[in-house]
Amino acid sequence: MITKIGIRNFQCHRSLTIDLDEFVTVIVGPSDSGKSAIIRAIRWLCLNQPSGDSFICDGTDSVTARMKVDGRTVTRHRDKSDNLYKLGKDEFKSFGSSVPAPIERLLNIGPVNFQQQHDPPYWLSNSAGQVSRELNAIVNLEVIDSVLSAVAKQITKSRNEVGFIEERLSKAETEVKDTEWAEDAESDLKRLDKARSEHARQVVRVAHFRDVVEEAIERRETHQQASKQASALRTVVSAGKMLRKLGKRRKGLDELLGQIASKEVIEAPDITRLGGLKEICKTRSQAAVGLASLLIDIQECHEKVNWKKSDYVAAKDRLRKETDGKCPICGSSYKGDL
């Protein structure tokens, strides 16, 4: 409820304060005494109308209208530097031609609440539609109409959206049917990927088997060469044994010649045969030295042969184990020696 109005420098009123009655307040006075100016000041405060500054008293540069509503003070002020509203200690600026929302909600006053001096009788000269709109504004029916109109628009919009979505859904279902082959294709692709992986694994396995087979063939050739060398070495060993026997015989002859040389010989014996035998012994001695060196080489060759045999057996066992006893190329089982 409005309980007090204060005006300063508004038209003819330099300073005016009015205490309003709880029920009805009547403002009376002679013509041109400022009664309508009071209504204009209240309208300026409540509706921010009229605009401009033509209502400021001559000789002043500021104007103020103040109203006490429900125990709270609302102030409208304008001067050369400020144009503002106040609600208590809160200030509002840059509000344009409207009223700040907190003040508008507190006052709850609109154009329908004002009747100017020269206005026609309230509602009597208005059309039925205008009276209906103003009644609606008083009881907030226009808010209901506005909400109903907004709801109707939203319903229409929603129906259009539903129709659009249903159309898109129908198209999507058709597209889904057209792409049913993709599921079978996906299954085929999975099988193809699995076959490709298996093929790659088999390629690696075959390459590994090929390396094993090549290694086994190489070791078999090495074994064959070692066998030939061993056969030759056995012949050499046999010859060495014979040379060893000859060496022993040469040693016995050397001892005999030494005994003969240490004794006096009265008559010169025939030693022609002994000289030839000495040359034979010398030759045999040189051969024995060569055979000794050859025996060392033979022993080393025996060790190499044994090592190659061991490698060959290990390679055969590995090949049989890696291939499960089957040829990796043709798949047939191994028969006999590799």
Rank of each mutant, 00 (worst) to 15 (best):
D270L: 05
D53S: 07
T60V: 12
A150V: 01
P100R: 07
I42D: 00
G290M: 15
T156R: 05
H223V: 03
R72P: 01
G163D: 11
G336P: 07
T323I: 09
D19Q: 15
D317A: 12
F23H: 11
K248E: 09
L124T: 07
F114E: 01
D58L: 03
K171Q: 11
E215G: 06
N83W: 07
D297S: 15
D211K: 13
R78T: 06
F23M: 06
D311N: 06
V63M: 13
A232Y: 03
E142S: 04
D188G: 01
S146W: 02
F164V: 06
V99C: 08
V69M: 05
L338S: 04
E221G: 07
D184W: 01
V74K: 02
D178Y: 00
G336E: 04
V131E: 00
R320N: 14
D337M: 06
S127I: 01
S81W: 09
V313W: 03
L169Y: 09
L107D: 01
E22V: 14
L192P: 01
V176S: 04
E279Q: 15
V305G: 05
H13Q: 13
I298M: 14
V204M: 08
A314L: 14
N140S: 09
L233R: 08
G290V: 15
Q299R: 12
S332W: 01
L319P: 05
V237G: 09
L20F: 10
K93V: 07
A287D: 14
S97W: 02
R76W: 09
K308L: 10
I329Q: 08
D145V: 09
M242G: 02
K308T: 12
V265M: 10
G71L: 02
F10A: 08
L243S: 03
V26W: 07
W123E: 04
G110N: 05
V162M: 04
V24Q: 08
S293G: 15
G88N: 04
E303C: 06
N160R: 11
L47Y: 00
D82F: 04
G276F: 14
I266W: 09
K4N: 15
I103M: 03
I5M: 14
T25H: 11
A200E: 11
S187V: 13
D145G: 10
Q229K: 04
I138L: 07
R191P: 03
G275F: 12
E264H: 12
R320K: 14
R220F: 03
D21N: 14
Q286K: 15
L243T: 07
S187N: 10
L16D: 10
R105K: 06
N48M: 03
T17Y: 04
C301F: 03
I2A: 13
A314Y: 13
Y312V: 07
G258W: 03
L189S: 03
L45P: 01
G71V: 01
E198T: 05
K321L: 09
K190V: 10
V99E: 01
R284K: 15
L148T: 06
T222R: 12
K4A: 15
K309N: 11
V26G: 13
W44A: 11
Q299T: 14
P120Y: 00
Q299V: 11
I298N: 14
V289D: 15
A314D: 10
E134D: 08
D58Q: 10
F92L: 00
Q202H: 08
A185I: 02
W44L: 13
F10V: 03
W123N: 06
H13E: 13
L319E: 05
D211C: 05
T75S: 10
N113F: 02
R284M: 15
H223L: 09
L274T: 13
V206P: 01
